[in-house]
Design a protein around this nucleic acid. Structure first.
Lengths: 119, 119
DNA sequence: TCCTCATTTCAATGATTGTTGAATTGTAGG
DNA sequence: CCTACAATTCAACAATCATTGAAATGAGGA
């Protein structure tokens, strides 16, 4: 992933409404959600959600598809994956020992049995 | 990491000069670099670099220490690590199989022997 | 103490970005 | 074809952010 594209993605995720949309769509999974449903869920006007959806799409964080009268958006897992990879490459550049703990800490999937309070 | 803090970090990394500073400091490692040296490296005015350094510090991406007349900044690997963890938690929420490839792809350390063109 | 160097702070300006409501496009059903 | 509905586009305005140069702070050396 290029630096410019990464910056665009970071900018997209830095805005409250947009980050909420992304998290919502990640939760929703591949099925995605219609623009209207997203607007309702995040409580912003249709035109505003449309504005942010376009931004997220441009940033490669979500992907749209038409379905009847609705437009369904879903998380672009490839884009998210690439962004994580970009960040890790930077962070780990020459210092793998420092970033290795991130992997353990991020532990994909549901928490199995936390050892202590460690939110 | 809280969502609000993550947004601040994303915002910090979304700006060209700031992202360049972070990457520079990651490369520099724990020794870090003086503010003046950073300004020279990224080719912006001292006051401007100071503005961005403050922002990055606030975002938890870099950490300052005084050394004689200079102020030395270095990458905050803990902050970067936490941001990666935040992104992975989101991305992987319920979909570990989708994000797992990110780990292999980000491969900490120098590339060993790429199989093909896979930019 | 006085002087110098490194960095930060400040105020002003220009540039981006987010929000709003009205008008528009595009899809489906009667 | 006409109506209803989903979503987007547009123009305008408010708000936030980046850049600049001058002035201020703070640490060391003479």
């Amino acid at each position: 992933m290029e630096e410019r594209q990464a910056r665009t993605a970071f900018a997209a995720l830095s805005q409250e409404t947009r980050l909420r949309i992304v998290r919502l769509l990640v939760q929703a999974g591949p099925d995605g959600m219609a623009a209207g449903a997203i607007a309702e869920a995040v409580e912003v006007s249709p035109s505003n959600v449309s504005f942010h959806l376009k931004d997220l799409e441009h940033a490669g964080m979500i992907v749209p598809r038409r379905e009847a009268r609705s437009i369904i958006y879903s998380a672009d897992f490839t884009g998210l994956r690439d962004l994580i990879a970009f960040l890790m490459k930077d962070c780990c550049a020459g210092h793998p020992e420092i970033c290795a703990p991130a992997l353990a800490d991020a532990r994909c999937g549901p928490p199995k049995a936390k050892k202590k309070a460690r939110a």
